[in-house]
Design a protein around this nucleic acid. Structure first.
Length: 480
RNA sequence: GCGGAAGUAGCUCAAUUGGUAGAGCGAUAGCCUUCCAAGCUAUAGGUCGCGAGUUCGAGACUCGUCUUCCGCUCCA
C-alpha cells in the first residue's frame, strides 16, 4: 500500500514535470482540485477522446455524435430530477458555523441508539426521517433534530439554523441583469444534451432503433470534497453514449454494452486483472440496473466508467415537462413508444489517469560493463501516445540534420513527430521514454550511403535498421 | 468540513544557537561527434507559499492565512 501511494505521488510529479498536468492557476497557489493539461497531456487527452469517438461512432454505423451546449434550459434539470435529487438538505450550527447533511446527523443518532441496543427506536427514527425527506418537510426535519436533542459535535449545542437545500449544481446568471428567472445551471452531466436532442437527431440522421447518440464534453459538479489529483474534479469531461432501444430489451442491451465497453478498455492493452465490474445495489433515481467498470488505481479499485439502464425515465420526463411527444414509431411492430435507454458514461480525466497509472514504469538493470542503469518509461499505447515518432540525427554535422528534416517533412502531415539534435543519443532516448514516444529513428552516416535508419522501440529498447522510406508506414500501421 | 503532516531554484534536498540563501540533477548556449541518462565550459533561474508579530537582525521563533498530501467524512 505504501509503495502504491509512493507510486501515485511519483506519477503526479512526473505528470507535472513532463508537461502532462499542471495545477490550475499555479502562480496564484493553485485552485483546489482544478487542473490544466499541458503540451503532452492535452495531446494524450485528445487522443483518448478521439479513440473513444472513433470506436463509438465510426465503428458503429448505428451511433452518431452530437456536441450540445453546456448551458441548457433550466427546466431540463427539473425534468432530469437533478434539481430534486442532486441536492441534499443541510443544516448549520450557529455557534460552530459547521454545516452538516441533515440525513447524516440523524443517522448518526440512529447509530448511537443501535450501539446502546435500542434497535427499534433507531429504526423508528430513520423511518420518520425518510418520510420527512420524501415530503421535503424541512421544518419537520428541523423539529426532529430539536426534539431528539441532536447536538453539534464541535460546539455541542443545539443552536441550529433552518434546514436548507444545498445544490451540487453550479449556477450562474444568463443575461446582464441578475434575476431569479435567469438563473441557469452548468450541466452536471452531458446526458441531458442528448435526451433533449433525441427527436432532432433521430429525424435528421434518419436513425432506426436500436441506435445511439454519442457526445463528449465538460460537466460540472460542486462536490463537497474533490480529491485524488484529477480523479475527482469539480470540472471534468465525460464521454457518453445513450443507446435507444425497444422497451423490454434493456436486459440484453445492458449485457451487450457491459461486455463491449470492457473490450474497448482491453483494446488499449490494459491487463484484464486490473478491471472488475461493480454492480450497484442502491440504484439512482433513473435506473433499473447499473454497474461500474472499475480499474485498480494506485489508490485502489475505483470507477472509471458506468453502464446504466436508464429505462424511459429521461425521455418520459422531458415529454412531461416540455409537452413534446418524445416517441418513436417502430415499423417492425407497428407501435409508438418512448424508447428505453442504456447509457455508457466514462470520465475522460479518469481514463487519462488510468493510462498514466498503467503506463508509468521505473526500470533498473545492469549494463554489460557492470554499472547500473535505469529509466522512467511511459508505456502509453502507440495509438494514443502524445508523440508517435522522434527523429534524431546522430550528430548535428555532416548534413545529418538535413536528412532528418526531410524525413520530418515526410511524416508530420500524418502523425505527431518530434525533432531533436541536442545531447547524446542515449539522453534523447530517455527523454522520449519519459513522455511515452513509442518510436525513435536515428539518422547516421550510413544513412547517407544506403538510405537506411535505425528504429528504436520504446518498450523493448531493441533497435533495427530499416529503409528510411518505410518509416512512415511502419509507424502508421501501429497507430490503429 | 474535522484531525495530522508538509511548503526553500523546474526537480530532490542543504543552510550549526536567529547573523550575507547553497549543492546536485534538470534547463539554455557552446565544445566534443559518441546508437541507450549522469565528459568539458559558460549562463539563466529564489521577495525561503503569503501576511503580520517578536528581534538590532527571521528561511529558522509566534500567530493568522493559502495550498498540497494522508486519514475520517462526502461521492449519481
Amino acid at each position: 500500500m505504501t509503495t502504491n501511494e509512493n507510486k501515485f505521488q511519483e506519477i503526479i510529479s512526473h505528470a507535472k514535470e513532463y508537461g502532462f498536468v499542471f495545477p490550475s492557476s499555479e502562480i496564484y497557489d493553485g485552485l483546489s482540485a482544478v487542473y490544466d493539461y499541458g503540451p503532452y497531456g492535452s495531446e494524450l487527452k485528445k487522443n483518448i477522446r478521439d479513440y473513444w469517438w472513433r470506436w463509438m461512432t465510426q465503428m458503429n454505423e448505428n451511433i452518431v455524435g452530437i456536441d450540445a451546449a453546456i448551458f441548457m434550459h433550466p427546466t431540463t434539470w427539473k425534468a432530469s430530477g437533478h434539481v430534486d435529487n442532486f441536492s441534499d438538505p443541510m443544516i448549520d450550527n450557529k455557534d460552530s458555523n459547521k454545516r452538516y447533511r441533515v440525513d447524516h446527523i440523524i443517522e448518526g443518532l440512529a447509530d448511537t441508539l443501535r450501539s446502546e441496543g435500542k434497535e427499534t427506536e433507531a429504526d423508528k427514527l430513520l423511518a420518520e426521517m425518510d418520510a420527512l425527506l420524501a415530503a421535503e418537510d424541512f421544518a419537520g426535519l428541523k423539529d426532529l433534530i430539536y426534539t431528539r436533542n441532536i447536538k453539534c459535535s464541535v460546539s455541542n449545542t443545539c443552536n441550529w439554523t433552518d434546514v436548507r437545500q444545498f445544490n451540487l449544481m453550479f449556477s450562474t446568471e444568463i443575461g446582464s441583469v441578475a434575476e431569479e428567472a435567469d438563473k441557469i445551471y452548468l450541466r452536471p452531466e452531458t446526458a441531458q444534451g442528448i435526451f433533449v436532442n433525441f427527436l432532432n437527431v433521430q429525424k435528421t440522421a434518419r436513425m432506426k432503433i436500436p441506435f445511439g447518440i454519442a457526445q463528449t464534453g465538460k460537466a460540472f459538479r460542486n462536490e463537497i470534497v474533490a480529491r485524488q489529483f484529477i480523479f475527482r474534479m469539480r470540472e471534468f469531461e465525460q464521454m457518453e453514449m445513450q443507446f435507444f432501444i425497444r422497451p423490454g430489451t434493456q436486459k440484453e442491451w445492458y449485457e451487450y454494452w457491459k461486455e463491449a465497453r470492457l473490450q474497448w478498455h482491453l483494446s488499449l492493452g490494459v491487463k484484464p486483472e486490473k478491471y472488475r465490474y461493480h454492480d450497484h445495489v442502491k440504484l439512482a433515481h433513473y435506473a433499473d440496473a447499473a454497474l461500474d467498470i472499475e480499474y485498480e488505481f494506485p489508490f485502489g479499485f475505483k470507477e472509471v466508467e458506468g453502464i446504466h439502464s436508464r429505462t424511459d425515465f429521461d425521455l418520459k420526463n422531458h415529454q412531461l415537462y416540455s409537452g413534446k411527444k418524445m416517441q418513436y414509431f417502430d415499423n417492425e411492430i407497428n407501435q409508438n413508444y418512448i424508447p428505453y435507454v442504456i447509457e455508457t458514461s466514462i470520465g475522460l480525466d479518469r481514463m487519462f489517469l488510468l493510462i498514466l497509472s498503467e503506463s508509468y514504469a521505473e526500470e533498473k538493470w545492469t549494463k554489460e560493463d557492470g554499472t547500473a542503469d535505469s529509466r522512467v518509461v511511459m508505456r502509453i499505447p502507440a495509438k494514443i501516445a502524445p508523440l508517435k515518432l522522434a527523429i534524431l540525427p546522430l550528430t548535428k554535422k555532416d548534413g545529418l540534420p538535413d536528412i532528418a528534416k526531410e524525413l520530418m517533412n515526410q511524416c508530420k502531415p500524418f502523425f505527431r513527430c518530434f525533432y531533436e539534435e541536442k545531447d547524446t543519443i542515449g539522453k534523447r532516448y530517455r527523454r522520449m521514454d519519459a513522455i511515452g514516444t513509442p518510436y525513435c529513428v536515428t539518422i547516421d552516416h550510413q544513412t547517407k550511403e544506403d538510405q537506411t535508419v535505425t528504429i528504436r522501440y520504446r518498450d523493448s529498447m531493441q533497435q533495427e535498421r530499416i529503409p528510411m522510406s518505410q518509416v512512415r508506414e511502419l509507424v502508421q500501421a501501429n497507430m490503429l
